[in-house]
């Protein structure tokens, strides 16, 4: 809970939705990818937003994201800041009065944003997710120094310097291995990733 700044949306000209801009198939894509077919039953009560500890950081509230998906505002949803603020805490999912698994929907939206190139390359969350993917592809497990350096390469070295003290602190406390652990059958892991990701994230 933070002191919520007054940042009521709607500065600037009113949005006008042109019917031609609406992607009628978007909701179907999202439902298929997320396995959440209850999206059409949302009653727009805002329980998701009210339960979300990150709502105040978002450009669109989670409730609004759901309605935008339903109405086919694909570009606006995939280019939004909101989807990258989901911390996967699952409060919206367990509290939704219509049983919509919104966390799963958010996974799907992030994935679509990456695959369709909406996520800016230097933006922190996409960079982090892409690097994570590569590190696990290389070692089969997470290797924190690799992750840190990879993220820095993607989003600028300023970041590496900011992360350095933490990394050193971890080393000193025996919380970080200098050398990576590698799964012996790392080929198996790579094969699994190849098959499911279908090259989605390699751009």
């Amino acid at each position: 809970m933070r002191a919520v700044q007054s940042q009521v949306p709607g500065r600037g000209p009113l949005p006008v939705v042109g019917e031609a801009d609406l992607d009628g198939k978007f909701v179907v894509t999202v439902m298929e990818l997320s396995g959440e077919d209850g999206l059409l039953g949302c009653i727009q009560c805002g329980t998701c937003t009210g339960s979300c500890q990150l709502s105040s950081w978002m450009d669109y509230t989670p409730r609004r994201i759901v309605d935008m998906v339903r109405k086919g505002l694909a570009r606006e949803v995939l280019a939004s800041r909101a989807i990258w603020y989901c911390a996967s805490c699952y409060y919206c999912t367990v509290r939704c009065p219509r049983g919509i698994k919104l966390t799963e929907v958010l996974y799907a939206l992030k994935s679509l944003a990456l695959a369709r190139g909406y996520a800016e390359p230097g933006a922190p969350a996409p960079a982090f997710y892409r690097t994570f993917f590569e590190v696990v592809g290389r070692y089969g497990r997470l290797y924190e120094p690799g992750l840190m350096i990879g993220v820095a390469l993607r989003s600028g070295f300023g970041r590496l310097f900011r992360l350095a003290p933490l990394g050193l602190g971890m080393l000193r406390r025996g919380k970080m291995a200098l050398l990576p652990e590698r799964v012996r059958a790392v080929d198996e892991v790579r094969a699994l990733m190849e098959r499911v990701s279908r090259g989605l994230v390699r751009r």
Partner: peptide, 22 residues
């Protein structure tokens, strides 16, 4: 023996089924 990363939130966000197969 020889377990691998579960995929966690990061991989699930890259592709929702990725963490399922991992």
């Amino acid at each position: 023996e020889d377990w691998n990363c579960c995929g966690t939130t990061a991989m699930t966000s890259v592709e929702p089924r990725l963490s399922v197969v991992l």
